[in-house]
Design a protein around this nucleic acid. Sequence first.
RNA 1: GACCCUAUCGUCUAGCGGUUAGGACAUCGCCCUUUCACGGCGACGGCACGGGUUCGAUUCCCGUUAGGGUCGCCA
Length: 440
Amino acid sequence: MSVRVRFAPSPTGFLHIGGARTALFNWLYARHTGGAFILRIEDTDAARNTQEATDVILKGLTWLGLDWDEGPATPDPTGPSRGNFGPYFQSQRGEIYRRRVQELKDKGMAYESEGAVKFRMERAPIVIPDLIVGNVTRELTDREQADPDFVLIRSDGQPVFHFVNVVDDLEMKITHVIRGEDHLSNTAKHIALFRAFGVPPPHYAHIPLILNPDGAKMSKRDRGASLQTYMDEGDVPEAVVNYLCLLGWSPKDNREKMPLAEIIQRFDLPQIHRNNARFDIDKLRWLGGEYIREMPRDRFRESALAALTRAGCKWETYPSPYVNAAIATCEGKIKRFGELAPYAGFYFTDDVPIDPAQFPDDSKARLKKLRDAFAQLPNFVAAEVEKSLKIVAAELGIKAGPLVHPTRLACTGNPSGPSLYHLLEILGKETVLKRIDKVI
RNA sequence: GACCCUAUCGUCUAGCGGUUAGGACAUCGCCCUUUCACGGCGACGGCACGGGUUCGAUUCCCGUUAGGGUCGCCA
């Protein structure tokens, strides 16, 4: 039987990085096995589920490159979708749930209680066969002993998560449930429900959680918990995907940076870890740098310009050869595009921030001499600029460094940045002299 | 409180009875270099603890401890 897996998020207006990884693992498993990846929106909470919130999920998955074989085509619950098992919004599946509750009632497995419908839960321990953890025997907790039955339908008529989740997995013929370990204990309830319906439950694979750097569960408040952060800060999606793969899964041979095709080919459930992993932003960013470095020039420029625009940088007012040359000097230098505006913003403004304290008198005197030398240059290109600077340094009896540093500071406002001589050439003689003059 | 999962450098991990416990990120040196980054070389740093089993345990078993998760008319 062909594999069918699903990602079933609740639209809260927020795509958790852990949720993104759950989606990724499901997607990888589907692609690895040639099965189907289904997206189902669990929008039973009408009050807080909006189309905007659903759109966050669709956009996030799309950004990561996780395409779904079945599921919504738009954030509209009543809109078009792909697949033969719809609707893919739980808010549109009320009729199915009503039918299924009736089925349980008819079997004597469910009953009315204070306006709600409750499930007659099994009292005996339930064994959860988990593909990652192994067989887990789940007993009732002391609280559950006191009242083992749980609510299926709230007194306001709305079905609860455990119920809709199982009904949908059943109706959509899901074969493997790959989800966070936080659901492991709940799975006993789900298995009992499948049994009540008289069908075998799907295979379960509970993946470890992503923890914050402190070792606690990544919560909404933790920095980097939302996928949106990475979209906003100009991270490369391939790097995010690659990094997420490395959290809780390992190819076992020390490979880390891997093309997606290779990951798909090698991804499988047995290599998934059992232990939680802390999120390490530094390692993600390292991967980001690697991916950016090998990025085709055109894509680099496009992403760079988009990031500059997001940062409010007015690069459009500059001639396009100037813009392209400026961007080119940043290639290989950044780990994410959000770094670009502070790194190269000086190209696109006349107002470079200058801290007078950084220019002592002797530094100013040197700059003055350099300025005069620059002013004499008929051909203000990198090689000539470099030659000129080195001559001035020799005349002053100093190394290039003490001259380079203040020049960079005066022209860019930054102690670090692109190659100095190239940056000066791009800025042009007039601008360079103007900026040095301002300091002197 | 009850139940469940987990435990190798700071972090992510390899290991699956005998290894100088390997790699990556981070950190710190040195080299390269006009800055930064890249790259190269090197350093630092780990098997949570206690019992077993065994000729021999990081590896298998039990316990302790620690961390995480779950016990909702949230998902």
